[in-house]
Amino acid sequence: MPEAMETQMTAGTPLLSDTSAVKVAARDVNVFYGEKHAIKGVNLDIKQNEVTAFIGPSGCGKSTFLRSINRMNDTIDICRVTGSIALDGGNVYDRSIDVVQLRARVGMVFQKPNPFPKSIYENVAYGPRIHGLCRHKDELDEVVMGSLERAGLLNEVKDRLDQPGTGLSGGQQQRLCIARAIAVNPEVILMDEPCSALDPIATAKIEELIDELRENFTIVIVTHSMQQAARVSQRTAFFHLGTLIECSDTEQVFTNPIHKLTQGYITGRFG
């Protein structure tokens, strides 16, 4: 397919010069939904222990690209990915890669909080259980408590761990989902508009949390709020109609964008 070949130049510094700091390296990534070409020739490096924000108008392919990093697109029959996405140098689309292992290394938090209809404890214990991470009950307890603690939720729920996770408030549910992802001890956490269903106070809490998590995890966050991108991220990637238009340090993108489309978007002229 000829169109897949043409790789558009991305403005800014999508590729890092310090290759040792690269956690995820996407090269010439194309994603198709049947005939629809949703991601077109994206080249992008995601830096270790940083927050990278994906911004862009609705339908530009932010979620699609995010989900191709942990191969969540595998669950969609008509979806096809070409190119390579390397996690610590190993292509996640390689035949030898087991998606179960991959998703243990690359966790995900979704737009709408989606706790399982189980107790708070069981929600967090779910990942460690299926990966057989803990041999004993106390070990599991420790992991669950630790994850809730790191997600900043422990104090609010410690005396009702056996109550359903669905009974929490929206913001608490989302932090529960973050705790659930942390419990597997991933290296990368992907977040797809994690605050879009939350009120401003809950949003602020999550943003604070993301900033803390950066110390131990590499985080990629999709957001439709440019303020949020500016607040939490160190690097920002701007997508438009499936193409990665510009990617630089967040500061740079918001104060001094190079591409006209980026300028238009961040000054609110469209999208």
């Binding site: 942990n70 669950t75 995900m108 989606n114 779910y126 299926i130 989902c177 659930r180």
Partner: peptide
């Protein structure tokens, strides 16, 4: 969203059905 949450944690299809969808 339930299924996706489970897949996102690395659960297989049968684990997802047994532990999330069925309950």
């Amino acid at each position: 969203a339930m299924r996706e949450g489970s897949y996102g944690l690395g659960a297989t299809k049968s684990e997802t059905i047994r532990r999330v969808v069925f309950p």
